[in-house]
Nucleic acid binder design. Sequence first.
DNA 1: AGCAAAATCATACTTTGGTATGAATGAGTT
DNA 2: AACTCATTCATACCAAAGTATGATTTTGCT
Lengths: 156, 156
Amino acid sequence: MFRFVVRYKLVFLYAASLVLILVLLNVLQYKLLLINHSYEFYMLCIAVLFAVLGGWLALKLVKPKTVLVETKRLVSELTPTDLQQLEQERQQLNLSSRELEVLQLMARGLSNQEIADQLFLSLPTIKTHSSRLFEKLEVKRRTQAVEKGRQLRLID
Amino acid sequence: MFRFVVRYKLVFLYAASLVLILVLLNVLQYKLLLINHSYEFYMLCIAVLFAVLGGWLALKLVKPKTVLVETKRLVSELTPTDLQQLEQERQQLNLSSRELEVLQLMARGLSNQEIADQLFLSLPTIKTHSSRLFEKLEVKRRTQAVEKGRQLRLID
DNA sequence: AGCAAAATCATACTTTGGTATGAATGAGTT
DNA sequence: AACTCATTCATACCAAAGTATGATTTTGCT
């Protein structure tokens, strides 16, 4: 039971905060007697607020649906030996899935903030991911990372 | 259906806990504070309804994350028509030779300072060139410029 | 159940990138 | 000769990128 609470504490936290806001609205309602009878307004506020919060929460909590998309690749020039070597290099890099994901969004020209928004993560998180990525790829800048990622066929 | 419930269990859990807490609050209010609660109940219903609705909508509307899967498939070369169109686009961009030069060094991952050193120019000069370049390519960042330059076959 | 790696977030800081504005120079054109 | 355009450089300022460090949480694996 306790573990349950700990595990889903975010859920309870959100619920609690929502309740708090609701209570606050109620208090305000009783303090500001002027608009005592404009209940519709409060309801509208609450409806919008909760709709937005609900939406945000849902996006936060639910892992995004993944759709597999086949990418067309020109592999004609590379010999099987080359491909094998590339595969080996890729494995030696030992990139995590997140790092790879970040790299691919980088290659499309997204800023760190945009990547964070896209993946529903915070900006610092993206920064740490990219820092690790640069270390592993032994590069200094994102443009170099993209270049190297392209050479290793991690992108496109 | 069952899968759906399992997959989004957090959301349902959130909604359920929200309802529970709100109802509890209502009861407490009724018992302790003796506040007229007919409107509150209405608002609670609306809040819960819209929270769930917002969550549902968000889940419905969110774009599925696309995961690129490599397929080693041979892709036909560009048709002459495509090449012609690319050439036309390139000409319409009206890039100066310096701008093109800067773009190509960018694509290799060089920093502005490094580009300046390479071309025996000053840093401000490179900055103005790159600014113009971004304008003409209608992009905001160097990574986007590289991406667009690649699409237009200005690089490689 | 417990551990190691991955992932997340934060804060503070430095560096690089990008914009705005202005200005000087030289090459080629009308 | 006047004009346009590309090129060069400068200064100042704001935004984004990247580093360092530390902490917490998930998660995959034994």
